[in-house]
Structures are given as C-alpha cells and as structure tokens.
Simulated scan of single mutants.
Amino acid sequence: MVKKAHALAEQAWKTLSSRPIYQNRWLSLCEDLVELPDGRTTIYGVVTSGECAGILPFLDSHTVLLVKQYRYVAKRVTWEMPTGGVHEGESIEAAAQRELSEEIGYQAGRLTRISTYHTSKSVMDETAHLFIGEELASLERPPDETEFIEVRAFPFTDALQMVLQGEIVDGMTIIAMLHAARLRGSSVD
C-alpha cells in the first residue's frame, strides 16, 4: 500500500469544474471539483491573489527599515518589511520598487532576489518574491491611501532577534530576515 500511495503522491489532480464564489480587486475565491489520483472526487476551495513582492531594505550594511501597521485579518499591529501585490503588467522588480516608495519613501539602487515561495501551498495560489534592497535613495512619493504605517530603522541584529523571539510574525519578513542572516553570516541562535 505504501508503494502505491507513494506513486500517487506525485500525480497531478484534475480540475473537473470551477465555480466562482467571490471576487474583489485583490482576490477571488473559487470552488473546484477535482478528481484525485485514485479516481475519487472532492471539492476544493482555492483563493487566487497572484504574486507579491517583499523587500528587506538596508539603509547601510547594519541597519534595516521596517514598517509597523495594524493588520486587519491578524487583528494586531505587526513589524514587517515593505510588501505588496504585483499589479497586472508590472514586473516583480517594479512592484518591489513601488512598494519601497509607497511604504518607506525610498528606491533601491540594488535589488537582490533571495527567495521565491508559495505563501500557502494548500488553499491560496499566492507566490511571494523576496528581495534585499540596498543603496537606498530617498524619494518624494505619496503613500498608499489604504496604509497607515510607521517606519523605523533597526540594527539588523536587533531585527533578527525580533524574528527569533517571535516579535516579528509576518512570514515574508521572517523568511527574508533569515535569508539575509545566512547571506551575511549572522548567527541565528
């Protein structure tokens, strides 16, 4: 039985039908009827929100900028790096620069991609693209009208401790901070 289950683990599920349930400008929800690898069918809810970009901005080699804001779904205030959705027709890098501009008023002279991953592999199709932003230049650009944020500079080592102590709870920021620590040879214990 284990051998058969193992073989079925890599077989794609087949979408038999998809029914839209809800849609707004940020996401859509569909209910799919899918055929499983063993021939049975089941209902699967799928949230579609597309791609997003997150940028860990370094003011200098030892200082990062983080934003603090209230997150409605989490029902709490969080510290996180600038993040946001990729608009239709926009490159991932352009989205990253736009989010930096809107949230912290800077543009990065150098963007380094550090990770691309699925934010939720089970019910959401969102793909996150994470960058380190360096060589920041100040910009004059109005903030996003739906964001009410505070921007603060942190020593990178302090921000890393915030991740390790559970003070930073945003998944994109945690992943970016840990990658940045690895790339910079910082200890994460």
Rank of each mutant, 00 (worst) to 15 (best):
V2N: 07
K3T: 07
A7L: 11
A7P: 00
L8Q: 13
E10K: 08
E10R: 09
Q11F: 01
Q11T: 11
W13N: 09
W13M: 13
K14V: 09
T15F: 01
T15K: 12
T15I: 14
T15Q: 10
L16R: 09
S17A: 15
S18A: 12
P20W: 02
Y22L: 14
Q23F: 05
N24C: 12
R25E: 14
L33W: 01
V34A: 10
E35P: 08
E35K: 12
L36M: 15
P37F: 10
R40Q: 14
T42C: 15
T42G: 12
G45R: 12
G45C: 10
V46N: 11
V46I: 13
T48R: 14
S49A: 14
E51K: 13
A53D: 02
G54F: 05
G54R: 06
G54T: 10
P57I: 00
L59F: 03
L59V: 11
D60N: 15
S61Y: 01
T63F: 04
L65V: 05
L66T: 07
K68Q: 11
K68F: 07
Y70C: 09
Y70M: 01
Y72S: 13
K75H: 09
K75Q: 14
R76A: 15
T78P: 00
T78A: 13
T78S: 11
T78E: 15
E80L: 13
P82R: 00
P82D: 05
G84L: 06
G85Y: 06
G85Q: 09
V86R: 10
H87G: 07
H87L: 14
H87N: 10
E88C: 06
E88W: 04
E90F: 03
E93D: 11
A95E: 05
A95S: 15
A96Q: 01
R98C: 01
E99M: 09
L100I: 06
E102F: 07
I104G: 01
Q107H: 07
A108T: 02
G109F: 02
L111E: 00
I114F: 03
T116H: 04
H118W: 04
H118L: 12
T119R: 06
S120E: 13
K121F: 04
V123P: 00
E126W: 02
H129S: 00
H129N: 01
I132S: 08
E134F: 05
E134C: 11
E135V: 10
E135I: 06
L136N: 12
S138R: 15
L139N: 12
E140D: 14
P143N: 07
P143H: 08
D144P: 08
E145N: 06
T146F: 08
E147M: 10
E150M: 04
F156L: 12
Q161H: 10
V163L: 00
L164H: 02
E167L: 05
V169M: 12
A181W: 01
R182M: 07
L183A: 07
S186D: 08
S186E: 13
V188H: 02
D189L: 11
